[in-house]
Design a protein around this nucleic acid. Structure first.
Lengths: 224, 224
DNA sequence: GGCGTAATGTACGAACTAGTACGTTCTTCA
DNA sequence: TGAAGAACGTACTAGTTCGTACATTACGCC
């Protein structure tokens, strides 16, 4: 945050802006993910921190700005994970399967992110749109898929006419649902979608479904 | 609601319990879907109705009970739609494809339902679980899929080992995502997933992906 | 060591929100 | 017709919730 170089901060410091700020964001992430934007309570967050409510407003100014900061934090983590993915050296079929499975893993490991995205959709992404940082953040992911699709069509492996954004939607749908809808699904079907005994099977399902779709087994009009 | 038979109510009646009750539920559905449980305002609902806030409490007793009544209403509509589906006379591949496409259509036509389910998941289905009506409501849908899967395995068309609940999850995932996540997806990828120009393609994608998965094109180890 | 400022704590207020007390009017049915 | 109860409206309250005024303390730098 501060631009000028400063001496290494003593470990047991009583005052530490970075640390306080980080803790506020961390607690806020949990509370917003757990209760929604309107349902999360600033006072409750304060009670869960080492510092006080005063500091939330000192650093973030308003509940909404804090919420946007949380969104920016979790989205930046996703983007970092995406940029670490390297599948372009793989053959198209294995590249897209691996991409789907890595997406599965990331979503599985970051349920708060999925919940916050769900909450943001309830509010029609009004807060997301207020953030300058978070515009067109999907471009890199779509670009990667686009290159894999081209290679797959060139090699003859892929036959569908879906574009990169369609494929991304499909992968996201399969990876997000089991986290986002786990509670209602559990109540209606008596199955905890996030239980360990289903994880490996669902992971494989995700990769297989995407590959099967792209290679064309489901087509009404077979290609040959 | 009332059990004893009563004479046909005059059309221009000034007082009409059924009508008032129905309008409250309708407005509440819209408001809860739009703002979430905590975000929806009882006073705001009242302002949007012909009657007053007093009536909300007269008929439903509390905000939470009203919310649960809304959940019961939309879920019962889904169940009614499901029970109207008749695909068991079709061959397995076409049966599952048609089921997926009809599910797509229903979700496409009832965005409020999907939003309410999303909201309910934020609250970990705590309200859903309070309703006696809404327990194990998934059984009929799972039963139908189960029969289609058995027929498909018997005929040799289906090769995956996913069970009925897995397949239902997959269909739901594909149908729900484009509605539930339309706003954040739109902001990040610049595409409105619900725009008419994508609808037919996504509908076909959904059916094809499910069929392709079940018929085994994506399998790591081909069956022959 | 002392000064300026960044960081922090306490206590409070204004506005909002779910829910209710109380009174009124319409409808039904004997 | 008239009584009883169902349906409805107004005005209010108690509690909550975001946000802030004001006071204070620690830290870095000269």
């Amino acid at each position: 945050m501060s631009t000028q170089p400063h001496p290494p901060a003593p470990a047991g410091r009583r005052r530490d802006a970075e640390r306080t700020r980080a803790e506020i964001l961390e607690v806020a992430q949990r509370e917003f993910a757990r209760h929604g934007y309107a349902g999360a309570r600033v006072d409750e967050m304060a009670a869960l921190m080492r510092t006080t409510k005063r500091m939330i407003y000192y650093y973030f100014g308003a509940k909404e700005k804090l919420y946007i900061a949380v969104l920016e934090k979790v989205y930046s983590e996703v983007r970092a994970a995406e940029s670490a993915i390297d599948v372009e050296h793989l053959a198209p079929v294995e590249a897209i399967r691996t991409l789907a499975e890595l997406t599965f893993d990331h979503h599985d490991a970051h349920p708060d992110f999925i919940k916050l995205v769900g909450i943001e959709n309830i509010h029609q992404a009004e807060h997301l749109r207020k953030s300058e940082v978070l515009t067109n953040l999907g471009a890199p992911a779509a670009g990667l898929i686009s290159r894999i699709l081209e290679a797959g069509r060139a090699s003859g492996d892929f036959v569908t006419d879906a574009d990169a954004v369609d494929v991304h939607m499909m992968i996201s749908a399969l990876c997000v649902f089991r986290i986002a809808n786990q509670y209602t699904f559990g109540a209606l079907f008596g199955r905890d979608l996030t239980a360990p005994e289903h994880r490996a099977r669902h992971r494989e399902m995700t990769g297989e479904a995407v590959v099967a779709y792209l290679t064309g087994n489901g087509r009404r009009t077979p290609r040959d």
